[in-house]
Nucleic acid binder design. Structure first.
Length: 552
DNA sequence: ATAGGATGTGCCC
DNA sequence: TGGGCACCCTCCTA
């Protein structure tokens, strides 16, 4: 009988108790007792915390410790507790600052958190001639405007919410010409096409990929077609009207042969001038697909450390021969497409941890913005300058990868001074009693936090963000939801401001009872707002009405 | 209501 | 070089 066998092998059980007062916690008694027949739940019901010895399951002999002590969730030591107290997270004093990684203080008192500067660390600058200057000589546009235009950030925004992905959103892309069209990809490989001007209409193509859709790019010669790269190892080219896909590349033609051979495609970009789709895999290799023939045109080229994921590829907007890649080998690398082979990178930009994204600035292509898991945004002000170290490092909380789509700081494509970036924030702040994770607008020339966007109804972390190429619109992917943020019209009433100086805040809760939305629309709320949100408040999202339920 | 599981990276051995 | 395990603010389902 299985139970008999189990009982004979059952380990000893240690019970640690904690008296009520903190002071006596060090002298609480610890005793052992043999496990009796009634092990099912009697003790467990009384315990505040139950710990199994880490080896207990495997060896069957190690004692099981049932701890009644209050211990810190982070370091497992008694005497203090870490975790949320209301909407404020109490740090474990045994750990260094979670935000800036420097010792000597906790996250709560981190100077990079307390100020709006978010920790700008200037780097030494040196002027020197670099190969890139010669490459750029002819193409380089006139210098940036010498006087930086003032950032116009609205005081208040409206937010539309739509929830039609069955798994978390992994990437977003605005249509290059049709202003109201947003594409979204998810972890399941589905592709959403959303016209947020006609919010009753939506399309989700469920069979584009079989797992994570990591990146999307429009075909520059036919904006009805979109290329997508997926962890299923394929590039697909999907017709947005019909949803019909072709597969110009499949790196796993033989199917699943185990994790050591299964290739996943992450970083992708389109090189318009050469008519190429560039894509890279999780083993460090770059592939190229010719867009006219829809066929792979070259052998795989090792561009990052062998066996590591290449998560980002970006072609320079001015000089398409220049390529920027980044990945899990802690480097962003600059390449000349005309001679790209293992080790031929022009520059290797070192980071302390994984580089989630690396982008050239959108207009001149001369700046570089990277997001690294070491909680820092890095900016190289000019690729003609000193590339040995970044011009600035901005401490920003985004060190979290598991469960979430990786954070990527994105340029504002409309900002002529190329100084505004948007990035979601991992760490939460207490906003009137709610722990919220804002989306930050950061002036990357100063490190200043220009705006933080949040809404009391949105409690999830918004790790995917994209600014519209022409309009004042921000698209956000947060867990399975999509949000569209838009400045409030001047005629609309502006709510009282939060105590914080910098606030761009959805005001759903505050507007209760004062709604200027359309009552008859309420029945349509089903499906685009989750039930919990609906029950909390009737909101007056200006933009969205998505009529049908989640169809994924 | 709440416990548990999926999950990626880092680091250690 | 690879298995194993730990991991600070998840988020969804059963």
């Amino acid at each position: 009988m299985p139970t008999v066998t189990r009982r004979t092998a059952f380990p000893k059980v240690l019970i640690e108790r904690d008296s009520d007062s903190e002071q006596s916690s060090s002298e609480e008694e610890t005793f052992e007792e043999e496990e009796e027949e009634d092990e099912d739940g009697v003790t467990a019901a009384k315990t505040e915390k139950l710990e199994l010895g880490s080896d207990a399951n495997k060896k069957g002999k190690a004692p099981i410790t049932i701890s009644l002590k209050k211990v810190c969730k982070v370091c497992k030591k008694p005497g203090h507790e870490a975790g949320f107290k209301g909407a404020t997270y109490i740090d474990c004093p045994m750990k260094p600052c979670f935000l800036c990684k420097f010792p000597g203080h906790t996250t709560l008192t981190c100077p990079h958190r307390a100020t709006t500067e978010h920790g700008v660390v200037p780097a030494p600058r040196r002027r020197s001639y670099k190969p890139l200057e010669y490459v750029f000589e002819r193409q380089l546009r006139p210098a940036l405007p010498s006087i930086k235009p003032k950032c116009v950030i609205p005081d208040q925004v409206n937010c539309a919410v739509i929830r039609y992905h069955s798994r978390r959103v992994t990437c977003l892309e605005f249509h290059p010409t049709k202003n109201n069209i947003l594409l979204s990809g998810d972890k399941k490989g589905q592709l959403g096409v959303w016209d947020y001007g006609k919010v009753y209409e939506k399309v989700v193509y469920g069979n584009v990929h079989s797992c994570i859709l990591n990146n999307m790019r429009f075909n520059p010669t036919n904006d009805c077609m979109v290329y997508s790269a997926s962890s299923d190892g394929t590039i697909n080219c999907t017709d947005l009207e019909t949803g019909i896909s072709s597969s110009p590349m499949n790196l796993n033609p033989a199917g699943w042969q185990g994790p050591n051979t299964w290739k996943m495609l992450y970083g992708m970009d389109v090189n318009c001038e050469k008519g190429l789709v560039l894509v890279a895999d999780n083993f460090g290799f770059l592939y190229m697909v010719d867009m006219r023939s829809n066929h792979s045109i070259s052998d795989a080229i090792l561009i990052h450390k062998k066996g590591t994921k290449v998560v980002g590829i970006h072609c320079n907007p001015i000089q398409p021969d220049i390529l920027l890649t980044c990945g899990n080998d802690h480097f962003a690398r600059i390449w000349d497409m005309r001679r790209i082979e293992p080790g031929s990178s022009l520059y290797n930009l070192e980071h302390k941890r994984v580089v989630n994204s690396a982008y050239f600035s959108p207009i001149t292509g001369t700046k570089i913005l990277t997001t690294s898991l070491d909680n820092r945004l890095r900016i190289w002000d000019s690729i003609f300058g000193n590339m040995d170290s970044p011009s600035r490092e901005i401490v920003h909380s985004h060190d979290f990868n598991r469960y979430l789509t990786p954070f990527k700081a994105e340029w504002d494509p409309k900002d002529p001074s190329e100084s505004l970036a948007v990035v979601g924030r991992y760490i939460s702040e207490n906003y009137n009693g709610a722990a919220l994770h804002p989306i930050d607008f950061i002036d990357i020339s100063t490190g200043q936090l220009v705006a933080e966007v949040m809404d009391p109804n949105i409690t999830t972390i918004s790790s995917v963000n994209k600014l519209h190429p022409r309009d004042d619109i921000l698209a956000t992917g947060s867990s399975r939801s999509l949000f569209i943020w838009k400045p409030k019209e001047k005629s609309e009433p502006v709510e009282e401001k939060d105590e914080r100086k910098i606030v761009v805040c959805g005001t759903a809760d505050k507007k209760r009872g004062k709604k200027n939305g359309n009552d008859s629309d309420e029945s349509d709320d089903e499906g685009f707002m989750s039930k919990s949100k609906k029950s909390k408040s009737k909101t007056d999202w200006k933009l969205s009405r998505c009529s049908t339920k989640d169809n994924c």
